[in-house]
Design a protein around this nucleic acid. Structure first.
Lengths: 138, 138
DNA sequence: ATTGCTGCAAACTCTTTGCAAGTTC
DNA sequence: GAACTTGCAAAGAGTTTGCAGCAAT
């Protein structure tokens, strides 16, 4: 539950923070701040832009969410779930998660054996660029 | 040579464009626009900020360079060389190229066999986040 | 001569900041 | 009541745009 999530990270429980978490749970497509604000304002019309940005920053700091960025556009945010990669279409600017444990295993083993000089790996993330071939636009 | 590169892409050869290309050749660390401008102004003090941005956009369009973006900061640019991945340190914000043909081969084979439903892959790129363990700060 | 490019400055977008007033624990 | 959080509005950074004049072909 969201209240416990906040408590766990030593954050005070406020309607604004709950609203941002709620938005993150409901907006699945790596929303940008603007979408999050728009979503929240439906039920909570007076929330300030600055508050949402501050809240998102706080959550990023506490690793409740992560930032995502493509080569083209503004900041987006990603609720933390399992370790996943991104499928990205340049044309539509759509981003989808891609989870593949088999791939993670291969990559982990590969780098454990090989290593990289002067670099200690903490996270391996793929960005697969290309085109979505389904018709349902998200 | 830079002049031929421009000609090949149907772009007029101008001192400003040559200067941007020269900067890209000399600045190896995925420079941001600001650094590029600063570099160029050493020899070419009157170049306009807007011109550099326009030139970079033109080059991105013609695929002479690419955009790179981390989760934190501004746009950076990357001279096109061979297919490479990125090592990225969150602390220092440093980015290095990582070239690994063996890895590319493994990834290509993996995805040729496996495929992704509703997605046609055009490019596979890794971002390896972690820490640089050498002392020479770039 | 034609087309394309540059410089300039103003405008724009997204994000951050400062602070007084209000909430949460 | 102490510490933190919010709303607001203004400022900031980075980037884009419009256009008159200039340069390249």
């Amino acid at each position: 539950m969201n209240r416990e999530l906040l408590k766990k990270h030593g954050l005070k429980i406020t309607p604004q923070r709950l609203a941002v978490l709620d938005a993150m749970n409901n907006l699945h497509d790596h929303p940008m701040a603007e979408c999050i604000i728009e979503f929240i304002r439906k039920n909570h019309p007076n929330i300030a832009t600055g508050t949402v940005y501050k809240t998102l920053d706080t959550f990023v700091e506490k690793v409740i969410i992560k930032r995502v960025k493509t080569d083209r556009d503004v900041m987006r945010y990603d609720a933390i779930t399992s370790h996943h990669h991104h499928l990205y279409c340049m044309e539509s600017d759509r981003i989808e998660d891609y989870v593949d444990e088999e791939l993670n295993k291969i990559l982990n083993e590969y780098f454990i054996n090989k290593g990289i000089p002067n670099f200690q790996i903490e996270e391996i993330k793929l960005q697969l660029s290309g085109k979505f071939t389904d018709t349902t636009q998200k």
